[in-house]
Nucleic acid binder design. Structure first.
Lengths: 222, 222
DNA sequence: AGGCATTTGTCGGCTGGTTGACAGAAAATA
DNA sequence: TATTTTCTGTCAACCAGCCGACAAATGCCT
């Protein structure tokens, strides 16, 4: 889902509805998780593959009360417990699961499925390298700008007053996504508002007033 | 090759020598690159897949004279130009290349090959998440400790005076691998020596005196 | 409406790490 | 061997961003 942190842009659910994959879904088991529930934790032996059917799931790393959000999965996204990270439901959700070993069997039986997987993993890899780039080279301000910019491109709604972005994340959640702290994000975002680049409007919505400016900042040339 | 930054631990060269892949190699073209030569740059349209047959290749990101090394490929490692990053030969090397489109054709024809690719990409992904974890949570000192620790485990040679590590990297190259600067790495490593954890012996070789201590520091609990 | 919990803004103080600069050591080259 | 290049160590100055703390604002529940 969320801007630069998106792990893949293939929608597995849609793919599975295609001709050749038609009865593939029958191999999966549907599970439901309530908001805030943990879907899986890193390092617990069980190897499962998850496909999000409904809802949002946060994939994150933790370390001594700190948290870094790798991505937020949405409908059609896939993740496997043996990759790395923890998963938590951000809202009530339905998940299709399958044993990793079983999934591997499917991979063997349906060659084109593993081509899909190659694509999925390639996307994941490219995106995680984007994250590395941000952390290694860019300042918090650029990372926020990049985060907002990508979200704007993907989700921004054109209105008569400008591009509006519905941002259903707390300051702290944004901090976890860009690898910073609540306080820093707070003042940086306020800074953007003072510069007239964005403007908060009612209820977690922000109006992006200067998209180009955001884009430029995202590149990190300060 | 290099500790934590290793992208994959499958040796493609060996795999290709197996029965079922026997004549796969014939699809590749062998190229040679001299030390310091650039194999490919990010964003140049051409899509190639590279397999290292001989030598070492640095995969890195750059940004305004800065550099971050994602990994150093060795014999049997694979990389694709469309993933991300630049590639430079660290020593003279032989590379097997193939057009990405051609490679995709092979993937279709040889299903078990794409299973190998799923494994390779999975490894890459897991490793890049390790890098993210280091950058997001750990201090430079822990990252160096981790770097040395992993290298010790993989490459350290037991001798009568302790575990010896041949480190053919400059301070600056280490800095690029852990995401820091020459100066910081220099003083941190000297610190490790003063604490009696490591000891430089002749010619880029270091003696690891307290492996457990390194391991502990690598976890980042300061 | 009232009360509790979560979220946000904003301070200073502190610090890890970068930057630049320079000298000495080591290695490569002639 | 001499000379140039690369590499290493070590300073002091500076700063982005973290941390803790507190107050205000907002949202949520009964």
């Amino acid at each position: 889902m969320v801007g630069r942190m998106k792990l893949t842009d293939l929608n597995l659910i849609e793919i599975f509805q295609q001709n050749e994959f038609e009865n593939l879904v029958t191999n999966f088991r549907e599970k439901h998780f309530a908001k805030k529930e943990i879907l899986f934790m890193e390092g617990t032996g069980q190897n499962l593959v998850y496909i999000v059917k409904k809802g949002k799931v946060k994939i994150y790393l933790t370390y001594e009360e700190k948290e870094f959000t790798l991505t937020i999965l949405e409908k059609g996204d896939i993740y496997a417990t043996h990759t790395r990270g923890f998963a938590q439901a951000l809202e009530d959700c339905s998940i299709l699961t399958i044993e990793a070993s079983e999934f591997q069997r499917l991979l063997k039986e349906v060659p084109s499925l593993s081509m899909v997987m190659v694509k999925v993993l390639g996307d994941c890899l490219r995106n995680s390298i984007d994250i590395i780039e941000g952390l290694a080279f860019k300042q918090a301000e650029s990372r926020i700008a990049e985060f907002l910019y990508k979200l704007t491109i993907r989700r921004g709604k054109e209105t008569n007053s400008g591009v509006v972005l519905k941002l259903s994340l707390t300051t702290e959640e944004i901090a976890a996504l860009i690898g910073s702290t609540r306080q820093t994000v707070s003042s940086l975002i306020n800074g953007l508002e003072k510069e007239g680049i964005i403007e908060r409007i009612e209820k977690k919505n922000i109006l992006i007033k200067k998209v180009e400016k955001l884009e430029e900042m995202a590149k990190g040339m300060n």
